[in-house]
């Protein structure tokens, strides 16, 4: 399960909306071994594309070194799909190189609502997990849980023969 503060989710969604219709991408770092995302780092999409994202390699080196210096790791790696569902594409699976990370996808295809889902991607195998959004700002003891859709029930755009 991914447990993440609402303020971070809000910042990720705002980033995805801002860059729409291009895909947005970034990282949420957290203390190594904690599995707790604490520091939101929006990244440039070097591909500037509606269907592809890619971290700028030099920005990535800087951010990864900074995490190393602070004894952090990439707890969440997120990106948006701007016209399709929030499910990892073939491309996403091929590139997934952080077996310890939660791969968070935000779909901004609907103007008013966001679909937010999280996955583990290890050795090419995709496993969806629940997302728990924590309202720490209101009351750290009051935890609200939201379960997002667990099974892909929509058209698989990748396989539409385009």
């Amino acid at each position: 399960m991914l447990s993440i503060d609402r303020s971070i989710i809000d910042a990720i969604v705002a980033h995805a909306r801002r860059d729409h219709p291009d895909e947005a991408c970034g990282v949420v770092a957290g203390p190594a071994g904690s599995d707790t995302p604490t520091r939101h780092i929006p990244m440039d999409n070097a591909a500037r594309s509606m269907t592809f994202y890619e971290f700028d390699s030099m920005e990535q080196l800087r951010v990864w070194r900074e995490m190393d210096d602070r004894d952090e790791e990439p707890v969440v790696i997120y990106h948006s799909h701007t016209a399709t569902e929030a499910y990892p594409s073939r491309t996403d699976v091929s590139f997934a190189g952080e077996p310890g990370a939660h791969y968070l996808l935000v779909s901004t295809r609907e103007p008013d609502t966001e679909e937010i889902r999280s996955f583990r991607i290890v050795d090419g195998v995709v496993t969806e997990e629940p997302v728990e959004i924590v309202d720490a700002a209101v009351d750290p003891n009051a935890v609200q849980s939201y379960m997002f859709g667990q099974s892909p029930a929509t058209v698989d755009y990748e396989c539409s023969g385009r």
């Binding site: 895909e23 509606m50 592809f52 994202y53 890619e54 590139f95 190189g97």
Partner: peptide, 9 residues
């Protein structure tokens, strides 16, 4: 470093 990339298509 693992390249971080992907996307809908």
């Amino acid at each position: 470093l693992p390249a971080v990339a992907g996307g809908a298509f």
